[in-house]
Design a protein around this nucleic acid. Sequence first.
RNA 1: GUGGUUGUAGCUCAAUCGGUUAGAGCGCCGGACUGUGGCUCCGGAGGUUGCGGGUUCGAUCCCCGUCAGCCACCCCA
Length: 431
Amino acid sequence: MSIQALPGFRDFYPEDLAVRSHVFGAMRRVALRYGFEEYDGPPLESLDLYTRKSGDEIVGQLYNFRDKGDREVALRPEMTPTLARMVAPKVAALKKPIRWFSIPQLFRYERQQRGRLREHFQLNCDLIGEAGPAADAEIVALAIDVMRELGLGATDVRVRISDRRLLGGILGELGLDEAQRGLAFHALDKTGRSEYQARRKALADAGVGDSALERLEALPGIRTWADLEREFPHATREGEPLRAVFDAVEAMGLGEFLDLDLTIVRGLAYYTGTVFELFDAGRSLRAICGGGRYDGLLEALGGVAQPALGFGMGDVVLTELLRDRGLLPAAPPSAEVFVAAVTTEDRPHVMALVHRLRDAGFRVEYPFGHQALGKQFKLADARRVKVVVVVGPDDRARGQVAVKDLARGTQEAVDSERLDQVLGQLGCVTI
RNA sequence: GUGGUUGUAGCUCAAUCGGUUAGAGCGCCGGACUGUGGCUCCGGAGGUUGCGGGUUCGAUCCCCGUCAGCCACCCCA
């Protein structure tokens, strides 16, 4: 074995990069349609940009080192701190709300698994400066529309959505204190999994009574507003912002994607309102996308006192789902036009013609050495070009070339000066 | 970081109970085919059986270690 890519890092061969470009293209088109502007920042940041928010324990999951200038640095594990850093000095001058997106490559030092590598790309969309639920709906809708743009519908992906304010109200209604709420978040995150029992025990040990535990276990079953009002009537008021998000997303015609799901927790740290995750409907993969409202985070990171929310959508799980669903396009051909020479004497004419076509914007290949015409056609076929242009002495004497449409198998003699036009008629495009 | 599991050609896989020269399909290269591709036929290249050690007359096969992939845990930005 020769040297290979580091564990958790990917090589993008041309066919892989074609897939990546397809996914990025959909992300970028949808974000632009929503009036978002693209930005980027450095992949390497000062380590304390991350420890400031998450504490020192995060260092174990970072690619970090001391650079030659004796600075503690880290490859960025997420984009939000960079965003906060970039927005901070300009926030006074930027018209609110700020709608920005980026597709950064992010890094984390963890043991890899399927759908979870040490490096990935992640669409980040953030909306800064709007506290109302209309902004939350906009962000959720954007995430849904990226799915739709890639051919995924409401039977393929689901948006599971909750609200920290609502959940806080419910836990308050159950009489849980701050420490107990943290444990409850953790337990909810493990709902339906084998680890749940351990979490439940931790809650009981922390003094949460049986009746509260029982009502807590009703949360996963709450799927509608009617369920919520029946089980937790006093928390209904805290549910109003989330209800407004539902109404707005439904007004956009995307309501069929939404599932009320109070077990969505999204870590413990900084979310303050709406939280949501996108999953494949079969639940066989990890989350495709996660996000929510993080009022207060930007101030903690960069001194920007603005309400904000956003999401991150990674390329790895999303691409796996698209592959499962057969929604990945075949790699595009590397060229559309192949120019072949019948004799060695034709080669200078081939090169002149090829260059003329390339100047016009066609994607053109020709063989580097003289070969039997049959071999040249084999190469053209393997390249999946649309058209082969044959330059030969007989046609050349008449100022013509032979143009063959490979898919149809048809061929015609064409005056050289009309070639560009004929190629266009055969479906070759310029770039 | 912890536990489990898998590793044979570029890819997908085979190889009897541990047995002598590790095979096949696909792909790749060449030829049949010197003014025309796909199809067909023929030929060829390609292997430290992940790597290292051990047991054995003999290891792809059994044992140990290691690396890598996968699964779960931890964690999840």
